[in-house]
Amino acid sequence: MSGRALAKDQPASFAFTAEMTARLNQIIAKYPQGRQASAVIPALDLAQRQEGWVTRPAIEEIARLLDMAPMRVLEVATFYTMFNLHPVGKTHVQICTSLPCWLRGSNEVVKACKEKLGIGMGERSADGTFSLGELECSGACVNAPVAQIGDDYYEDLDYASTVKMLDAFKRGETPKAGSVTGRDGSAPAGDHLTLTEKPTPPAKQDFAAAKAAFEKAKAEAAAKAAAPKA
């Protein structure tokens, strides 16, 4: 994992759009007065959503807005690999290559992407539509191997399905997120193997009778306490 330094070519300036500013102010308002620096991670995320990547002017603008030293913002931006410090394509394909995904064949997925898109890891296609990146464990190991595109996970990939998915993106479509083999969330592939029978309802209880018995016992205890001592 390298390239956690700022990109060489940077835009001249950055400004949040009106919509993003409103969202940022909403986030800042969540924190106590004077603790606005707590909003730095969401602020960087908003900047990335707006520009596609985190630029140096964006870091400085966020530092100014949150009254922080630019270095403090840079530290956060370089710490989290989810922040792209270099320009990415319109479709930024990130493939999980951590151990579980690798065991389940992430190499094939990477190979499919490289061959289909003609770019290597950490590169961007000439027309700027695609870029390829690696992802640390995305926490969806049960559906390994996993690719993340935008905010969506595409799961249970193999060579063929990866190519199919990329083709859809190339056509400008957005394929349905989730398991490409049609699994229901992280349920087992194919038919369910457990909990197949109809669940039995809990044993029937007569709540009214139980309540009456309780009230009766309560009344008896009260009467006993109130009775004059012999």
């Binding site: 956690r4 330094a5 030293a69 630019p70 270095m71 403090r72 840079l74 530290e75 370089t78």
Partner: peptide, 16 residues
């Protein structure tokens, strides 16, 4: 102006 960028093995002390 001083800080630590990156994380883990890539952590580096640098000025802004």
């Amino acid at each position: 102006q001083l800080g630590a960028t990156g994380r883990g093995e890539d952590m580096e002390i640098t000025t802004y």
